[in-house]
């Protein structure tokens, strides 16, 4: 009897402890989520008085018929497809190299961490200059190889690749940080044993480093996937507040932002948000399933 009451009291106490966090989550995450879901069914809405005149699914039929939304969807998928794996592959290699006892190691570590603590807008401006067709460093180097200047940010065909290059570079920092942290946890004895068996560097990397790092890699994949699906700031910063030439780099969140804050189509913006939410949810679920089977814990 006493024990049970103690348990119950403990439970209430626990709840009390997490209450502040719960309230914050409820107010700033759950409530807006529900509101957005509801709002996606507002077809006639008077904003200034917050009165809904009619409900329906028109917002969903609209976005799926809207060529700009389709463009935003395909751009976002292409973006995710390139940025996440390439960034993880490069950061893995760099992290392994930075983990070696090389000269100026901490200097290089700082250099690679820098993007993580730099504002996206500042980086966007710098990359805007790197990509500039007349004055850009990138075109200068290409010119050394006899390649004609590329109109990186001026042509729809090259704008998305430019955005992807920028984003890969930008996302390296975070991945390198967590990979380096993961590498510290792999015991030196594994490598010693491998060396005893005269395993080469590639074998050590593919048979020891990658499997033992797999939970971290899976984590990086999920985080990278979610944040890449939500790409917005990179586009805004690189193209100076536009979605690329003739909207060629529009992404789902950019579309959502524009529909909400510029066009004041709150229902359409909410419908786009719900679609984005479902996409991310689906991918995360699939990935967790796959990770469960493949990841070595």
């Amino acid at each position: 009897m006493m024990r049970k009451r103690g348990l119950e009291l403990g439970r209430w106490k626990g709840l009390l402890y997490v209450l502040p966090a719960l309230v914050v989550v409820a107010v700033f995450t759950v409530y807006p989520l529900l509101r957005a879901f509801l709002m996606s069914f507002y077809t006639k809405y008077k904003f200034s008085t917050d009165t809904v005149l009619s409900y329906g699914i028109n917002n969903y039929t609209y976005i799926f018929g809207d060529s700009v939304f389709q463009k935003a969807l395909s751009n976002t998928f292409i973006y995710v497809l390139f940025v996440v794996p390439i960034s993880i592959a490069i950061s893995l290699v760099l992290a392994v190299m930075l983990n070696e006892k090389i000269r100026l190691r901490s200097f290089f570590q700082t250099v690679y961490f820098l993007p993580y603590v730099t504002s996206v807008v500042a980086m966007g401006i710098v990359f805007g200059w790197l990509f500039h067709s007349n004055y850009g460093l990138l075109n200068y180097f290409l010119g050394l190889f006899g390649i004609q200047p590329v109109q990186w940010l001026n042509r729809p065909s090259t704008a998305l690749p430019a955005l992807i290059i920028f984003s890969i570079w930008k996302s390296l920092a975070f991945n390198i940080i967590i990979f380096l942290a993961g590498l510290q946890t792999i015991g030196a004895h594994y490598y010693q044993a491998a060396r005893v068996d005269s395993a080469g560097r590639w074998r050590q990397f593919s048979r020891i480093t990658v499997p033992l790092l797999s939970p971290i890699i899976a984590y990086a994949f999920i985080i990278g996937l979610i944040s890449s699906f939500k790409v917005y700031a990179e586009v805004y910063a690189l193209f100076g507040g536009r979605a690329g030439p003739a909207d060629s780099c529009i992404t789902i969140v950019y579309y959502l932002y524009r529909q909400f804050y510029v066009n004041w189509n709150f229902g359409i913006a909410s419908a786009a948000a719900v679609v984005l939410f479902l996409i991310i949810l689906a991918f995360t679920v699939i990935q967790l399933r796959v990770a469960k089977r493949r990841v070595h814990y």
Binding site: R155, A246, N265
Partner: peptide, 18 residues
């Protein structure tokens, strides 16, 4: 009006580029 302005600016830019 604002939405039309944005949309048509983009259409015109596309027309020029393409």
């Amino acid at each position: 009006a604002q939405e039309i302005r944005n949309k048509l600016s983009s259409e015109m830019e596309a027309a020029i580029l393409e």
